[in-house]
Simulated scan of single mutants.
Amino acid sequence: MIDFGSLILQLFSPQYTRHPIFPDFLTATLVAMAISVGMSFAFAMLRRKTTDIDRVNRIMKETNDWRKAYTAAVKKGNKDEIEELKKKQAYVNKMALEVQQQQMRPMLIYMLPSFLIWIFVFPSIFGQVVAISPIHIPWIMCSDQDVQNHQQLDDKGNPKGACEVPGEVYLWGWFLLTSFAFSGIVGKVTKTSMPSM
């Protein structure tokens, strides 16, 4: 009998190469960072095409102003102002929902191609680790335990883990760090940055 769960898991599990195209950390780090920034630009352009950014910014400003006014009224204990602001709450909630829908549209379009690239392309180009860092950040960098796993061999004689030294940065961790680091800059350059709710 075919175990479909295992088959699907095997198909969609990244197959990290042990012989990456960019074997040295310097090249892998720079190329992965360039791809990450490029993907951020692609997402920003997609957001620009699918979202009315000016309207979203106006709604978010109006929503933030309402929240600040409501919080201030509650702190003061001004019941008349609280009642007046509560009358506008349904409208504010409706606008906040519209903003969420507008923000989800490009994300849903971007997710499938991005997921396929992450599963099938990047692991075969970069391998599992792409950088090394002197600052340790848990979960996205190799720990001493990960290095010990690397020293153990599997049935085929290959190391079980990818980490040779502590501080190596996993592929997804490096993309995450560079994406966060450059998202503000990309947002300002493409004029797609949005205020937080």
Rank of each mutant, 00 (worst) to 15 (best):
P113H: 09
S114H: 00
S183R: 01
I125V: 12
V169Q: 03
W172S: 12
I140R: 06
I117P: 00
L116V: 04
I185D: 10
T178K: 08
I137D: 05
A131L: 06
C142T: 04
K156G: 08
K156W: 09
Q128E: 15
Q152D: 11
W118H: 04
V129K: 03
G184A: 10
A181C: 13
I140K: 09
I117Y: 02
S143F: 02
E168H: 07
F122A: 02
A181H: 11
W172H: 10
V169W: 02
I117C: 00
F115N: 01
G161N: 07
I137V: 14
Q128T: 13
I137M: 08
K188A: 15
S179K: 06
G187L: 14
Y170K: 08
G127S: 07
T178R: 03
M141N: 09
Q148D: 13
S133A: 14
K188I: 15
C142P: 03
S124W: 05
Q152Y: 09
V130D: 12
L153H: 07
F180E: 12
M141E: 11
S124R: 01
P159C: 14
G187M: 11
G173V: 04
L153W: 11
D155A: 10
V147Y: 02
A131F: 09
N158L: 15
F180L: 15
L171V: 14
V129T: 09
Q128R: 15
S143I: 03
D154V: 10
P134Q: 11
C163E: 04
I125H: 03
P113V: 08
S133N: 13
E168D: 06
E168L: 08
Q128V: 12
K160A: 08
S143D: 04
S124N: 06
F120N: 07
P138A: 08
L177Q: 15
I125L: 07
I125W: 04
F175V: 05
L177K: 06
W172D: 10
I119Y: 03
P113G: 08
G184T: 11
V121Y: 00
A131I: 05
F115L: 04
C142I: 01
S114K: 01
L116H: 01
G127A: 08
V121C: 03
W118F: 06
K160M: 14
Q148K: 13
K156Q: 13
P159K: 04
G161R: 03
W172R: 05
F115I: 05
E168A: 06
D154L: 13
I137H: 09
V121E: 01
L176F: 11
Q145C: 00
C142Q: 01
L116D: 00
K160Y: 08
I137Y: 06
V169H: 01
K188G: 13
I125K: 00
I117K: 02
P159Y: 13
E168W: 02
C163A: 07
P159M: 13
P159S: 13
F182C: 10
L153P: 04
D155Y: 09
V165W: 11
W172L: 10
F126P: 12
Q128A: 15
G161T: 03
K160G: 06
V121M: 00
D144F: 01
I135F: 12
S114N: 05
I185K: 12
Q148M: 13
